[in-house]
Write a protein that binds this DNA or RNA. Structure first.
Length: 257
DNA sequence: ATGGTGGCCCGGCCA
């Protein structure tokens, strides 16, 4: 079973590339972030024609998340499972092929003294409670998406250049550690200890070609999934060419339970 | 790395 996550930075602008990528890579499940469209505009029929069921949580011009699956899509749930609904469309969940899949677009944070940074920290705390409400650590669980957090300094091109900024601060990294302490492993990093492993490169300044990137798109897997993970990758080829997203897809392959 | 690009949709926000 091949599962992927991809922040597409507008599904409308990226539809051709997403369709080509789906046909080429043939994943069983794709988690999508930043669709930037209302539910009515989501191309449900196009995904269905390609063999994928889908659930979309759209907002309009900002945010928007989706799960598409060709191995079943049960118990679709938009927003958080408990408490007040988040005002923004940043989390959607479903059970796909027996795996509880949670697709997230964690708030950017903007700056450490910005209210949006507190929103980010609160979102991460709610995410842990959400996962705990949907599953136990013994279940098959994958929490994937754009976390807007680089787990360690090894996940950014120049830690010194980013000091004091969001994505690398202690509190958000602690929030990620706390989420993982529920029982989620960063299987991509476990399988790829090398430096320069990134999933996002700024459009500006030729960052991709200069190697100025960050690994902020993660696939976190429960123990039973992680122990069956046979392969993983970041498809940086998808960051090349005409009109790419600024993010590359992240993939994990898992064997049968 | 404080400029720069790209998406929304056409003035300014967001990443």
């Amino acid at each position: 079973m091949l599962l992927a996550t991809w922040n597409v930075n507008s599904l409308k602008a990226r539809s051709a590339r997403v369709n080509e990528w789906l046909a080429d890579v043939d994943p069983d499940v794709l988690m999508i972030q930043e669709t930037k469209m209302a539910d009515a505009a989501f191309p449900t029929a196009d995904f269905a024609a390609a063999g994928y069921e889908s659930v979309h949580f759209g907002e309009g011009r900002w945010n928007g998340v989706a799960i598409v699956s060709r191995v079943g899509l049960e118990s679709p749930l938009v927003n958080f499972a408990e408490g007040e609904p988040d005002a923004q469309a940043r989390i959607v969940s479903a059970v796909c092929g027996g795996v509880t899949v949670v697709c997230v677009y964690v708030p950017n944070g903007r700056a450490l003294d910005d209210d949006h940074y507190q929103y980010k920290l609160q979102f991460m705390a709610r995410l842990r409670r959400h996962v705990a409400a949907l599953a136990t650590p013994d279940d098959d669980v994958v929490v994937g998406g754009d976390f807007n957090i680089a787990p360690t300094d090894a996940d950014v091109w120049d830690p010194a250049a980013l000091a004091g900024q969001t994505h690398v601060s202690e509190a958000e990294r602690d929030a990620l550690v706390d989420l993982q302490a529920w029982g989620l492993r960063d299987v991509v990093r476990e399988q790829h200890p090398e430096s320069g492993l990134y999933s996002w490169w700024d459009y500006r300044s030729g960052s991709f070609n200069r190697g100025w990137g960050m690994r902020i798109d993660l696939m976190l897997a429960s123990e039973s999934v992680a122990s069956r993970c046979t392969w993983s990758a970041i498809d940086r080829n998808a960051r090349k060419g005409e009109q790419p997203s600024d993010h590359a897809p992240v993939l994990i392959e898992i064997g049968p339970r």
